[in-house]
Amino acid sequence: HGLGYTTWAYEGLWAPERVAPGRPVRVRVTLRNTGRRAGREVVQVYLARPQDHERPVRWLAGFAAVTAGPGEQVEAVVEVPARAFQHWAGAWRTAEGEVSVLAGRSAADLPLETVITVSYS
Rank of each mutant, 00 (worst) to 15 (best):
G4I: 00
D52H: 09
E41S: 00
G71M: 11
S100C: 12
R26L: 12
T6C: 05
S100W: 13
V43H: 02
E17L: 07
A108V: 08
H1A: 04
R93D: 03
T67I: 01
L102A: 08
Q86F: 05
S121G: 06
A108D: 14
E17C: 00
Q86G: 07
V115C: 03
W14E: 13
A38R: 12
G90K: 10
T114F: 07
H53V: 03
R36P: 00
A20L: 15
E54C: 01
W59T: 11
R36G: 13
A95F: 00
V42P: 00
F63V: 03
L31D: 02
T34R: 12
W14G: 03
V19H: 00
S119Q: 11
P50S: 06
R28H: 11
P50Q: 08
L3S: 14
T6R: 04
L13F: 13
T94A: 05
E113R: 15
P56H: 10
R28N: 03
Q73A: 14
A82M: 04
G22D: 08
E98Q: 15
A107F: 04
A82P: 06
R58I: 08
P81R: 06
R58Y: 13
P24R: 05
E72G: 00
F85T: 02
A76K: 00
R26K: 10
D109V: 08
A108I: 05
D52F: 02
G62H: 02
A103F: 05
H53T: 11
V66Y: 06
G2I: 00
A65Y: 02
E54M: 02
R40W: 09
Y46P: 06
A48M: 11
R105Y: 07
A20G: 01
W92G: 06
R83F: 14
H87K: 15
G2F: 01
P21G: 11
S121C: 01
V80M: 06
A64Y: 13
I116K: 08
H1N: 00
A95Y: 03
R26Q: 14
P70N: 04
A89I: 09
W92A: 13
R32Q: 13
W88N: 01
V80C: 10
P16H: 04
H53D: 07
G35K: 03
T94D: 03
G71D: 06
R37F: 10
A103G: 06
T94R: 04
E41Q: 14
G12D: 15
V101I: 14
V57F: 13
Y10M: 12
R37S: 04
E72N: 05
E79T: 10
R83D: 10
F63T: 12
P21H: 03
Y5R: 04
H87M: 11
V57R: 15
W88A: 10
P50I: 05
L31H: 07
E41H: 10
I116F: 09
L3A: 13
F63Q: 15
Y120S: 14
E72I: 09
T117L: 13
V57Q: 11
T94W: 01
G97Y: 12
W59A: 06
T30N: 10
V25H: 01
T117R: 14
A84Q: 13
W88G: 01
L31Q: 07
A84N: 08
V80F: 05
L60Q: 09
E72F: 02
G39P: 04
G69D: 14
G90Q: 09
V57T: 12
A38K: 10
F63I: 00
Q86R: 05
A108K: 07
P16E: 02
